[in-house]
Amino acid sequence: MNKVTARFRAFAEAQRWIWAAGGSFLLWLGMGLVSSRLNLESLVSNSMSAAFLAIAAIGQMYVISCGRGAIDLSIPGVITITAFLSTGIINAQDANILQGVAVSLAAGALVGLANGIIILFLEIPPIIATLATGYVLTSASLIYNEGFRTFNSAPLLVTLTRGRFLGVPFMFLVTGLLALAAWWLLKRTVYGRSLTAVGQNVEAAALSGVRVRRVQLAAYVISGLFSGAMGVLLAARVSGAFLGMGDSYLMETIGAVVIGGTLIFGGRSTVLGTLFGCLFFVIIVTAMQVAGFDVGVQKIVKGVLIILVLVVATEKPVRN
């Protein structure tokens, strides 16, 4: 018995996504039992919402991997502005999708690049730099919003974000492919190793020959790209763009990344964990809605939960 627990502990230590996955499963089970409607459909619909969140969360994870308090506060701003941009450019025509997506991704990448440059070359802390670019994006969205009159999405994007094939949402494929790419880049390339090195000890990374600035800059650009993609998809899902539509994703991306088992101190990240972290987050909200909690109580529970997860699951940063 002891051996089993020890082996499980070792496994959970190495595969940190297991906590978020297990938590999601238990919540789904509990929710089904309480409402006496235990079915796969509720899991699929929750996973669908999680699939959106996951795109931005993976971007956030790349930035958090840089370590030393690296965090991307501009994600909500990027989501909102790219939602506006894509909706405006595509204007409900399939023919314009390519252009809309390209512009949105470029905008996201540009914001990421700006973040990176401000952080690395002006030596301004990430939390401040991304806060500042976030402010600029807020203003940009406000201005873009004036006279914005588009409330429709291109049919193809609607199918992609809401449609299903044999009961499986297309979004699973989209997020799955993006996550796979993110995993490969993180775990199977020199870039991923370098990023993990920078996150653990930036001085040591520089002296080991890692091009630390380039590596970090890329992480911010990746975050911008992912948030940009999320903005496009989210706009298609809700049929349009509105002010503040990205706002709730700041805290949810951070929460999902941390709950998923990525070290907030940097240097250890897990894509799979981030996916399950997102699912966990979404299921919690659904569970509370099912239980009929009012908005205030829902917020309280979310807050308590984030703290509890950290209290239970955080391992101390390994210091020598």
Partner: peptide, 15 residues
């Protein structure tokens, strides 16, 4: 608990 302030206070803000 040696947990990062940024997350704890984020949770607290919701409370």
């Amino acid at each position: 608990r040696q947990i990062p302030a940024i997350i704890v206070t984020l949770g607290a803000s919701f409370i």
